[in-house]
Design a protein around this nucleic acid. Structure first.
Lengths: 248, 248
DNA sequence: GCAAAAGTGTTGTCCTTACACCCATGC
DNA sequence: GCATGGGTGTAAGGACAACACTTTTGC
C-alpha cells in the first residue's frame, strides 16, 4: 500500500529540507502589530463610534480608535477583546475581525501593522466610567481629523457593517435587550441610509420568527406606546442555515 | 471661532503626550509576518488550489500553501502579488485579502502571523513552468495532511469564495476568456455544490446583460457545440450599483 | 439514427411593494 | 379632541421555480 508517507519519502529525498524552524523564523523581518477596535453604538437615532484623543504629540487633538499592540503570544482576537474590556468593562460582546492594514507609512513611528476589529454594543449597557483620554461616543458623521489611517479604517468598517447587516441580524447587538419595532427600523434606516415602509418592515421581521413579544410596552413616549420585543439569538443560531439574509 | 485646534489645546494641555513615536514603536513586541495565497483554479470540472510540498523537515511530505514573509516596507497586498507573480508569472489577477491568522503556536518555529489572500485565475493561461517543490494544482477535495494551519486557512478561504461568488461574479476569473454557458453553470454547480436548472440559469445570466456573444462556438465536443461568451467586466464595474447579487 | 447536450417559452406560485384605515396614548 | 405614531390587511406586479419539446452536432 502506498501511503502519503512513502510518496513523501520518494519525492523529497533529493531536496534540502529546513531543519531549524526557529532560525528560519528568526530570519524573517519582525514587525510591530496592533489591533484597532471600531466599536459601534447606537444612540439617539445616530450611529456612533467609541473614540479617544490621540496621545501622540504629532496627532495632538486628533481622534483615534481604541487600540493597543498585541502582547507576546496573544492571539489577535484576544487582544481585541482585551482592548474592549479594558475600555468598556464588557466581555460578552460581538466582535469580528475585519481587515489588516499594512501601508508602510501608516504609523509615523515606523512600520506598524494593524488588524481592525469591529464590535457592536448597546450604549445603554455601558456608562463609560473610565473616560481617560476623552473616551466618548462620537457620531459617525463629520469625522475628520483622525490620527494615523484611522479614518480609512473606520470607512472600511462602516462599509463592512452595512454589508454585514443585510446578511446577519448584527444590528440587534446595538439595541437594548428590549426594543420596539420602531427602534429596530430606525436602526436599519439610519445605518443603511434608506427609508423603509413601516408595515412591510414589520411583516418581514415577524415572518423571520425570531422576535419574542415580551408583553411589555414602551414608556415615556408622547404617543401610543409600542410593544417591546426581544430577539431570540438561540433560535436564530439554530435556524441559521435557513436564513437567507435581509434585502431592502 | 472655536476650531478643532483650540479645543485640542484646551483639552490636551494637562496631558503627557508622546513625543518620540519611534521609541514607542520600538517598544512594541515585533512579530514575523507572512502572506499565504490560496490560489484557486478550475479545471476538468473541479475546483483546484495551487500547492507545494512543504520544505520544512517536520512537515516532510505535507502540502503547503504558497507563502512568503513580508519584506521590509512591503505592503501586504504587494507581498501577495509578489508571491503570485513569482510562482505563476501572472500579474493582473484577482486578489483579495481574506483573513489574518494569529494562533501563537501556528508555526513550529515560534510566533508567526499570517495574512491569507485569495486569488482566482484561469488555469489555462498558465503552464506552471516553474514546478519547484512540486508546485501543482490540487483538487480541493481530499485535502488532508497539510502543513501549519493551512487546512484551516484553506477552509476559511473556500467558505469565503462560496459566499463571495453569490454577491459578485468572481467565478468568471476562473474561466477562460471565452466560455460556454455550460462551463459557467458547471463552475457554479461544482463550487457551490448545488444543482441548477439549465434554463433558469441561462435566463438569469442573460437578464444580467453582462455576457457578450462572441459569435463563436465550442470545438471538440461530442455533441452540439454551445455558443461562446465573454464577460463584460467594464460594463459590470460601471453598473455595479444595480447588481444585487446572485441567489440560488 | 442515436446519443448528448444546446437552445427556447410558459405557467403557477410566492415574495415584494404600494398603499389606507383604525387605534391607543399624551397633552 | 387633536396630534402622533402604533397596529393591521389587501391587491397588483415582478421574480423565481418547475417543467417539455425541438435542434444541432459527433459517431
Amino acid at each position: 500500500m502506498i501511503t502519503e508517507e512513502i510518496i513523501a519519502s520518494l519525492t523529497d529525498d533529493n531536496r534540502n529540507l529546513i531543519q531549524d524552524v526557529h532560525a528560519l523564523v528568526e530570519s524573517y523581518p519582525h514587525v510591530p502589530i496592533t489591533v484597532d477596535c471600531v466599536i459601534f453604538g447606537f444612540d439617539n437615532n445616530e450611529l456612533k463610534v467609541l473614540l479617544i484623543r490621540s496621545d501622540i504629540e504629532m496627532y495632538r487633538g486628533k481622534w483615534s480608535l481604541l487600540g493597543d499592540f498585541a502582547h507576546d503570544d496573544e492571539e489577535l482576537d484576544g487582544a481585541a477583546y482585551r482592548v474592549l474590556h479594558e475600555r468598556t468593562g464588557m466581555d460578552d460582546v460581538f466582535l469580528e475581525q475585519v481587515k489588516t492594514f499594512s501601508k508602510p507609512n501608516r504609523h509615523p513611528g515606523g512600520r506598524v501593522l494593524t488588524v481592525a476589529y469591529c464590535s457592536l454594543l448597546n450604549i445603554e449597557h455601558h456608562d463609560l466610567e473610565i473616560t481617560d483620554n476623552e473616551l466618548h461616543w462620537h457620531s459617525i458623521k463629520n469625522l475628520c481629523g483622525m490620527a494615523f489611517d484611522h479614518k480609512e479604517i473606520l470607512d472600511v468598517c462602516y462599509a463592512w457593517l452595512r454589508k454585514r447587516m443585510l446578511e446577519h441580524p448584527l444590528g440587534l447587538n446595538l439595541l437594548p435587550e428590549k426594543f420596539s419595532l420602531r427602534e429596530l427600523q430606525n436602526l436599519y434606516e439610519v445605518i443603511l441610509d434608506i427609508k423603509l415602509d413601516r408595515r412591510n418592515f414589520r411583516k418581514k421581521f415577524f415572518s423571520m420568527d425570531f422576535l419574542i413579544d415580551t408583553g411589555e410596552y414602551e414608556d415615556d413616549v408622547p404617543h401610543r406606546p409600542g410593544r417591546l420585543y426581544r430577539f431570540d439569538f438561540n433560535k436564530y443560531e439554530h435556524n441559521k442555515r435557513r436564513w437567507t439574509g435581509i434585502e431592502f
